[in-house]
């Protein structure tokens, strides 16, 4: 991460070990994951031993220690979505892309994440993808969505109108 980006994140937080999680959150949203070099920088700036930074980064689900795909498909597996069939949606996604949750596909295009409740239970099962949300999902719809995203990614653009297509 560039010096300036890091400096912005660390502003007002240097030598404050209790800010570790906040700092890692910002690194995660900036970089998409927490790299070993980011950990070293953070360890030095905050005064937290490197092993402890690693320990914290590996404990919390918010942090990814590996780079993530271009399209991050988040499937809500909260209780309400589960009873409405979220498991089938997740199975379809993982089966279709050939990866387990939190793994990235070989081509770097997709990572499937699971989240335990987005709080939009009236619209479940819910899948979000890089800011857009898709409602009342089932295996069939998610299959179409993944197909659309793959073609769009390889074609380089995404049709705006399809953003909220159910």
């Amino acid at each position: 991460m560039s010096e300036s980006k890091l400096a912005a994140i660390l502003k007002g937080r240097k030598s404050q070990p209790h800010q570790l999680i906040e700092v890692l959150q910002d690194v995660q949203s900036r970089e998409g994951y927490i790299s070993p070099s980011s950990m070293r920088d953070v360890s030095e700036a905050l005064g937290v031993p490197l092993t402890e930074v690693y320990s914290v980064a590996s404990f919390y689900k918010a942090f990814s220690l590996n780079p993530r795909g271009k399209n991050i498909l988040t499937v809500c597996t909260g209780t309400a979505c589960h009873v409405r069939g979220a498991k089938m949606v997740l199975n379809q996604a993982t089966g279709q892309l050939g990866v387990a949750p939190s793994e990235m596909t070989q081509d770097g295009l997709f990572t499937i994440e699971q989240v335990n409740c987005l709080g939009a239970c009236a619209l479940g099962p819910v899948v979000t993808e890089n800011g857009s949300s898709y409602h009342h999902m089932n295996a069939r719809k998610v299959r179409k969505l993944i197909h659309k995203l793959s073609t769009a990614s390889t074609e380089g653009n995404l049709n705006e109108q399809d953003q909220h297509h159910q």
């Binding site: 490197l50 092993t51 690693y54 590996s58 404990f59 919390y60």
Partner: peptide, 22 residues
């Protein structure tokens, strides 16, 4: 005071490691 050994991960994946070859 800086240890090479620590717990990493959580739950089923919790394990003892010495990360970064420290």
């Amino acid at each position: 005071g800086v240890k090479p050994l620590t717990f990493v991960g959580r739950g089923k994946d919790r394990r003892v490691e010495a990360p970064f070859n420290l």
